[in-house]
Amino acid sequence: MQGNRVIGEAAIRAGCRFYAGYPITPQNELTEYMADNMRRAKGGTFIQAESEIAAINMVLGAAAAGARAMTSSSSPGISLKQEGISSLAADELPAVIVNIMRGGPGLGNILPSQGDYFQATRGGGHGDYRTIVLAPASVQELADLTMDAFDLADRYRNPVLILADGMMGQMMEPVEFSDPSSRQYPECYILKGKGKGKSKFIRGLILDAIRMEEHNWKLYRKYQVITQKEVRFETFWTDDAEILIVAYGTAARIAKGAIKRSREMGIPVGLIRPITLWPFPMEVIRSFAERVENFLVFEMNTGQMVEDVQLALGGIGKVQFYGRPGGVIPTPAELAKVIAYQARKK
């Protein structure tokens, strides 16, 4: 199945019952899949919104009203959604936002890119908040992580971002869907009319500085818990590695190919693949630094995650960077050459 459609199917299986989106390449198949299938799901709503801004705000309303809700877009559209994502974080509402990244800045192009790492991992919109960021590297993982995204969003009452790129979205690979877990979301957070009880309001506006500060610290504590509990990563051929590549998503796939080639040439190289970009696997990377000196960060941008790797290492070890921005997809052979060069230099 195609990546974009897989996200849609996984979302519906996970109980997503509200989707609003706006056309933008290369994620249109997801919107179309939802148009086709969401109405089939019992109580499901699909809306083609008038803009990305409207779509995310519809999601805000739907999430508050108790639905598992999702929207999707690609880079320029995700910029537009930031206002709503910030509101979701402030209001502590669960939602899943999919970014099928393309080349930027500005309109850029429609080719696969990883230029939105900073935007995704630093909250993206205004204010002091974070979103959980999941970075799938295969179509199978698109399915699994989409399902997980809804659970994580509920568990922490926080927006969760799926950060993939045009290649992940367009590519077809075999996929198997796992059984979704049943939803655990406390009724007390759902807005549905006061009934016989006390009236509720959900809001991000807190004019009093001390109370706003309190809210900020409350969110911060939640983010600390997420940082401790939800880090995910994969390691590949790291046991005897003397050079470690750090890459995620499409870049990580390419890195695996390059590592196989390099190993054939006798270069001991391995991979750390962050699956959660926020929370970032800081400690894992730091722990590797105890025995590996050379790190090579590989991204399809001009260097964004490399800053997190440097932060993780805190000055220990050598961090090199290789990147191809703008929608260029480097080949495993190309990266293998970079690895060989690093191996000679060291």
């Binding site: 705000n57 805000l60 309303g61 508050a64 206002e83 709503g84 509101s87 209001d91 807005l191 549905k192 009319g193 006061k194 009236s199 509720k200 309001f201 959900i202 809001r203 991000g204 506006l205």
Partner: peptide, 8 residues
Amino acid sequence: DIDMLESP
């Protein structure tokens, strides 16, 4: 005294 959701 009703349920409300603030909008951006």
